[in-house]
């Protein structure tokens, strides 16, 4: 083997001496995130079957008792259902609440320190993988990133610096989603379920509970939250309060180490929760009440 090479020639697309499957991970991320984006967009455009609280929201088998099919379930991609909460304010609004809701958790995930790594690699190829050369991807070119590399110092990537504000909104959403999960167990009477009891555990209740737990783990393992808890301090032992913040920071750091895992599991579970409720509302699948 005597192939003359110029040592600086490392920037061509895919230029690398790596002989492992470096392209597998970015492709999987591309597929996974792409699938969720396509599904969420389809679900939002469909504009119905995201809740099961009213008889008119669901498809009921002919001749069946409608009151046995209603459920206190609301899809997380449509929560809070603002048009339902404020009908007069949103009287002009005729589309799915998903269009009002998704931009907020979407912004939290788009500016998330984990997802930044994921999509910079998979969608922008800056870089596609470690020690792999790459020219700007079509998406990068579309956004105008073809000139000198500027990282996160210029518009629009400049806004990545405001991740903590999207965290504040995501934390607020957690309160709302926790209320939805509570309703999944204790909200059966006011929707007029057949037996008149207020408490039931359906498979859907557990699915929604799993959703709020996983989303909570993802939200509160956030790097910005880690900083705000105590990461910004230089002296942890300067007072009782800073010592307590240090203890909280240590515990949160454990969660933070698994931020990527929580990011994926929670994303998949959000999609699954919506799909479960959608299939039940459409009459394709039947929710089972455990007790």
């Amino acid at each position: 083997m005597a192939k003359t090479v110029v040592i600086q020639d490392i920037n061509a697309t895919g230029a690398t001496e790596r002989n492992d499957g470096w392209w597998v991970e970015p492709l999987m991320v591309l597929g996974g995130l792409g699938l969720f984006i396509v599904y969420a967009t389809w679900a939002a455009i469909q504009g119905e079957f995201y809740a099961m609280e009213k008889v008119e929201e669901i498809i009921i088998p002919a001749g069946a008792n409608a009151a046995e099919f209603v459920r206190p379930y609301l899809s997380p991609i449509c929560s809070p259902d603002l048009p339902r909460w404020f009908p007069e304010l949103f009287s002009w609004y005729q589309w799915s609440p998903a269009f009002l809701i998704l931009p907020f958790p979407g912004a939290f995930r788009a500016t998330c320190y984990y997802y930044r790594k994921a999509y910079y690699r998979s969608f922008f190829t800056t870089p596609a993988a470690c020690s792999v050369g790459g020219q700007p991807s079509p998406l990068s070119k579309l956004l105008g990133f073809t000139k000198k590399y500027t990282g996160e110092t210029q518009f629009p990537m400049y806004f990545q610096n405001l991740h903590r504000f999207t965290f504040y909104i995501a934390a607020l959403f957690m309160v709302i989603l926790a209320y939805d999960a509570y309703q999944g167990f204790f909200g059966w009477e006011h929707i007029g379920y057949a037996d008149g009891k207020n408490f039931h555990v359906g498979v859907g209740s557990l699915v929604i509970l799993g959703n709020v737990v996983l989303l909570g783990l993802y939200t509160f393992s956030c790097h910005s939250w880690r900083h705000l808890l105590a990461g910004k301090l230089d002296c942890f032992s300067c007072s009782d309060f800073t010592s307590k913040r240090f203890d909280a920071w240590k515990r949160q750091s454990f969660l933070n180490e698994h931020h990527m895992l929580f990011a994926w599991v929670s994303l998949i579970w959000v999609g699954f929760t919506d799909l479960y409720i959608r299939l039940c509302a459409m009459g394709i699948w039947q929710d089972r009440i455990l007790f």
């Binding site: 790594k117 470690c130 020690s131 590399y149 990282g151 996160e152 110092t153 610096n161 903590r164 900083h227």
Partner: peptide, 30 residues
Amino acid sequence: GLCNITKCCTEVCPEDIKITDNAIIPMKER
């Protein structure tokens, strides 16, 4: 600001220093 946290530095560190999570991101937050 030029770092886009793609974490390759952390992947190659022979001392297993969590460069991105424990140094770069905290400094970005500061």
